[in-house]
Amino acid sequence: MDEQESAPSAKKTKPLSTTRIHIKLKKELKLELESKAANNYMSLSQLLLQSARKSTININRIDSPHNSKELLAMKAAYNKFGAQLNMIAKHCNTFKENSDIVKILVALINVERGIADLKAEVIGDA
C-alpha cells in the first residue's frame, strides 16, 4: 500500500460566511450591554444583532445649501479676509524692522472687524 493511499486526506475547509465588525465603546457602556445580554441568556453579539434587526431608525435628512447665494458670499468674504492676512504676514516677514506697526495694527483690526460684521450678519448677535 502506498503512503499516499493510507494518508488521511486533507479536509477541504468551507470558506467562512461570517465577518467581524469592530466598534469602540466606553467601558461603562460595554459592561451595561454585557450585563443586559447575560440577563437575557445571550451573548453580546446576539444582543447587538437582535437590537439592530428589531429596531427602526428614522433618519431626517436636511439638505444643506451647498451653493446658496448666502453661503457663496460668506465663503468669498472669508477668502478675502484670508488674502488680506496673508498680505499682512508677507509684508511683516519681508520688511521686519522697517514696517509701520501702526498701519499693520490698523489693517489687522479692520480684518477682525470685517470678520465680526460677517459673523453678526450670518449668525446674528449671540
Rank of each mutant, 00 (worst) to 15 (best):
I115A: 05
E3H: 04
N39L: 13
V106A: 12
N39Y: 08
T18I: 09
L16W: 03
Q4A: 06
I21D: 00
M74K: 06
N98M: 06
S6D: 10
L44C: 10
D117H: 02
S51W: 14
Q50T: 07
K54N: 07
K103H: 13
G124F: 00
N60G: 10
I57W: 00
H91P: 02
E3G: 09
K36T: 12
A77N: 12
K24I: 11
N93A: 13
K80S: 12
L16G: 14
G82K: 15
S51A: 15
N58R: 14
K12F: 01
I88N: 02
L16D: 14
K14G: 05
L85R: 09
I88P: 01
S45V: 00
T19Q: 07
L25E: 00
N39F: 06
A7W: 03
D117G: 01
C92P: 06
H66S: 11
M87W: 00
H22L: 02
V111Y: 01
R20S: 10
K75V: 00
A73P: 00
A10V: 10
D125Y: 03
F81L: 08
I123K: 08
D63A: 05
I123A: 08
Q50S: 04
I109T: 05
S64H: 04
I115E: 07
Q84R: 08
N98F: 05
K14Q: 12
G114S: 02
E97D: 11
S17L: 14
L48E: 05
N40Y: 04
